[in-house]
Design a binder for these strands. Structure first.
Length: 495
RNA sequence: GGCGCGUUGGUGUAACUGGUUAACACGCCGCCCUCUCAAGGCGGAGAGCACGGGUUCGAGUCCCGUACGCGCUACCA
């Protein structure tokens, strides 16, 4: 056990996206590795942009990923009173001042132009305390700004980026409290981090500027600094920061859940962007890591400084997201212990109305065999109910792919009589095994002077409606004697 | 504009404190296997480490400069 405490502090202005998820993951891994506490704090002080739906989205994302937290979720808006008190404390101690200048309305469009202007000296900075108090007394609106000292610099030793320094001249007198009394981000974060005893702040590199401001606040409040570790950013293929507005649902983690990802596979993928195991902690070329392994080998020192690109191409159905992520998922589906996979497949079948309770009792062996067969070609969990449908329905309520019918059934008119004949032979088998089925099919092919491949491919399509799938004789066994005969007869009618 | 950070094949990464033909994974191409498609096995193309200087017997690894990219710069977080 250690007294290390970290937090993940998303603002609910969007769903949990890939970048946020990785920040959460690294915090979580670190906490688990050192035996510390992982805290979830929702930074909802921006009431206009925050919404309950987004909070739910974040919570769902965390749950799906299995990033369990030891404390929270705390909602920052509940602590506004403390934040306000801190602002006034700073005002009293001379670290902050009232700014009576009227609010400047700025929108997103003009903001970047405005900020190009030089920092201007604020005339209210040196307003005598008595006058400031008097004006406040009359009810004149004001914001409370932090009074950044004139000479000196802030500094902190970042675990990832090393020593960071910033001249006071490059830091503006940030607003602590809005004119409506609303506390702002930098103040709230610092007060909460102090209150929660956060020892390590692990967050995106886009906060490095804020960190300098926060360092100032820690000092003014007379509190020791936590350690900071800033993470490199995850970029979109166009090299811009991932964002909900620009990149849409493709960057939301719930999209991956809904697309049939195994959470552990996604975690594995995420862990490897912007971080790599340190020398000697893992087999040199290992890529697949279980959660436990990741916890074991994780260290903040293995995080690197350069941004990474998360690849996806919209509109490309097969490669809709990062190909390595896709591959990773496939790899997990293929190789994960069956007992871990089964609980993830069950809800998919239930959703599709394909689940039967006897899959866990009398038909357990058949069911597991079927899943074992399907998993070799399933790229996502969705495939079990998708391509897998013909394996689970008793009737013919599955789709016959047009191309498959054309290619494998209508290719040779002789199949119209061959398939019913094959159905009869299958039905007549006393023992229905891989070998007897194969022998029956090959014997028929030989008698009729056709290639076994013709019958094999036609049978596959007859049984599943598809042109691709597992080895035929495995497939026939799983479909079973009755259903196989029935489907062969039915297929003959399609010719 | 200012401040900061970064730069190894298409992508993600590796390369101990500078030392053989820059390694692995994904993706791509080919071959093998084969009843289809995958998987798997084998092999291949693809970076000379952003560029230019310097230090050194020797630099992707150290130093300087340049370019490019990204981030931040708000009474958002």
């Amino acid at each position: 056990m250690s007294d290390i405490r970290v937090r993940f502090a998303p603002s609910p202005t969007g769903y949990l996206h890939v970048g946020g998820a990785r920040t959460a993951l690294f915090n979580w891994l670190f906490a688990r590795k050192v035996g510390g506490k992982f805290i979830l704090r929702i930074e909802d002080t921006d009431t206009e942009r925050s919404s309950e739906a987004m909070v739910r989205g974040i919570l769902e994302g965390m749950e799906w990923l299995g990033l369990n937290y030891d404390e929270g979720p705390f909602f920052q808006s509940n602590y506004a009173e403390q934040h306000r008190a801190a602002a006034y404390q700073l005002l009293e101690s001379g670290w902050a001042y009232r700014d009576f200048a009227p609010k400047q309305e700025r929108d997103d469009a003009t903001i970047k132009q405005d900020i190009a202007k030089q920092k201007v000296f604020n005339p209210f900075r040196d307003l005598p305390k008595t006058e400031s108090d008097a004006r406040a007394e009359t009810g004149e609106p004001f914001v409370i700004r932090f009074k950044v000292p004139e000479v000196g610099k802030t500094q902190f030793d970042d675990i990832v980026f090393g020593l960071q320094e910033r001249d006071y001249n490059d830091i503006e007198d940030l607003v602590l409290l809005r004119s409506d009394g609303h506390p702002l981000y930098n103040l709230s974060v610092v007060v909460d981090d102090i209150e929660m005893g956060i020892t390590h702040v692990v967050r995106g590199q886009d906060h490095i500027n804020n960190t300098h401001k926060q360092v100032l606040l820690y000092q003014a409040l007379g509190k020791p600094l936590p350690r900071f570790a800033h993470l490199p950013l995850i970029l979109a293929p166009d090299k811009s920061k991932l964002s909900k507005r620009k990149h849409g649902e493709i960057v939301s983690v719930t999209t991956y859940r809904d697309a049939g990802f195994i959470p552990d596979a996604f975690i594995n993928f995420l862990a490897l962007v912007g971080w790599a195991p340190q020398e000697g902690l893992a087999a040199k070329d290992q890529e697949i890591f279980s959660r436990e392994e990741l916890i074991n080998i994780f260290s903040l020192e293995g995080i690197h400084k350069s941004n990474a690109v998360f690849n996806f191409s919209e509109g490309d159905e097969r490669n809709w997201t990062d190909q390595k992520a896709l591959w990773m998922n496939f790899e997990y589906i293929k190789t994960w212990p069956l007992e871990k996979l089964l609980p993830l497949v069950k809800p998919e079948l239930q959703k599709a109305g394909l689940w039967r309770d006897d899959y866990e009792t009398e038909r357990k062996a058949w069911y597991e065999h079927t899943i074992t067969l399907l998993r070799e070609r399933a790229r996502t969990l969705l495939d079990f109910a998708g391509h897998g449908r013909p394996y689970f329905v008793d009737d013919l309520s599955f789709e016959f792919e047009e191309a498959a019918v054309k290619k494998n059934l209508q290719k040779d008119p002789a199949l119209k009589t061959l398939l019913p004949e094959l159905a009869n032979r299958f039905a007549a088998l006393a023992e229905f095994t891989h070998d007897t089925v194969e022998a029956a099919l090959r014997a028929l092919a030989e008698e009729k002077g056709v290639k076994a491949g013709l019958l094999i491919n036609a049978t596959r399509t007859a049984l599943t409606g598809q042109s691709v799938g597992p080895s035929l004789f495995e497939l026939v066994l799983v479909v079973g004697q009755n259903r196989a005969a029935e489907r062969l007869n039915h297929a003959a009618e399609l010719i």
